[in-house]
């Protein structure tokens, strides 16, 4: 079940939003219900804090709220209360700060209040998106994830997507390479290797690799090639360990 919260300072638009959303829920039979809609952000927050059941939320927030906080601050507060919730910003073009929102809130999507765009369609897209993500979330709830923190920002990785972790040339810094990210964070190899699943192997004092990312062995040059093309020197005795670990699964 997903609880829907709507915050919009214009009461006409709020009514319109609510009706559209209710209509979509009833026609598409989504497991969702509108928990609260209001023109005031404090009412939304109060409802959220007093709500005992920990259902995941879907939030439609206007950015310009004409209140002491704007929709963005509201979203930041919601993130603290419901870290996995789906946030959708309802906004005009000029208020949209795409990168900033993406970095701090990771919203599910945006609904652009522009007379040339169909609002109904946009809302429907966001809701179907939330429904799909909700299903995936439920399916994967038992799966292990690995997180690295960089000055307070959490980067979450699925273990299989990690390729290697190595000591950077910058002091006290690790470099973590996954399929689509290359991040730096403070830490040491020894403390990191402990929190990784068993298909990670420390091949040298400063490098850990995911053994399933190894695509090529070069026994003569003492090298392995990983799936993104990176090469690492591997001591001869580690080859058999890598092979054995690959065959175990």
């Amino acid at each position: 079940m997903i609880n829907i919260y709507i915050c919009e300072d214009d009461s006409n638009q709020l009514q319109h939003l609510n009706q559209t959303i209710e209509h979509i829920i009833s026609t598409k039979k989504y497991p969702m219900s509108v928990e609260c809609y209001s023109t005031s952000p404090s009412i939304i927050l109060d409802t959220l804090t007093s709500n005992p059941n920990k259902n995941i939320g879907l939030y439609f927030l206007d950015i310009d709220l004409n209140a002491d906080i704007d929709g963005f601050d509201l979203a930041m507060k919601i993130r603290e209360l419901d870290p996995r919730g789906f946030i959708v910003f309802v906004t005009t073009h000029s208020e949209l700060l795409h990168l900033t929102f993406e970095y701090l809130i990771e919203p599910l999507g945006y609904i652009i209040k522009d007379s040339s765009l169909d609002i109904h369609n946009q809302i429907e897209k966001c809701m179907s998106n939330a429904a799909t993500k909700y299903q995936i979330l439920n399916k994967n709830s038992g799966k292990q994830v690995i997180s690295f923190s960089t000055f307070g920002t959490e980067y979450i990785f699925e273990p299989m997507s990690l390729i290697y972790i190595t000591v950077s040339c910058i002091p006290h810094t690790l470099e973590i390479c996954s399929d689509d990210k290359l991040i730096q964070c403070r830490g040491t190899i020894n403390s990191t290797v402990k929190q990784l699943p068993d298909f990670f192997l420390q091949i040298s004092r400063d490098t850990i690799i995911n053994v399933f990312s190894v695509v090529e062995y070069d026994k003569n040059a003492n090298k392995v090639v990983l799936k993104n093309g990176t090469e690492f020197d591997v001591p001869r005795r580690k080859y058999n360990i890598i092979k054995k670990m690959q065959n175990n699964k």
Partner: peptide, 18 residues
């Protein structure tokens, strides 16, 4: 950039490609 970053312990660089 790396040679600059070496001087700082309060700066980190992240790259993503999606």
């Amino acid at each position: 950039i790396y040679s600059i970053l070496k001087k700082y312990d309060n700066v980190l660089m992240q790259t993503t490609y999606i």
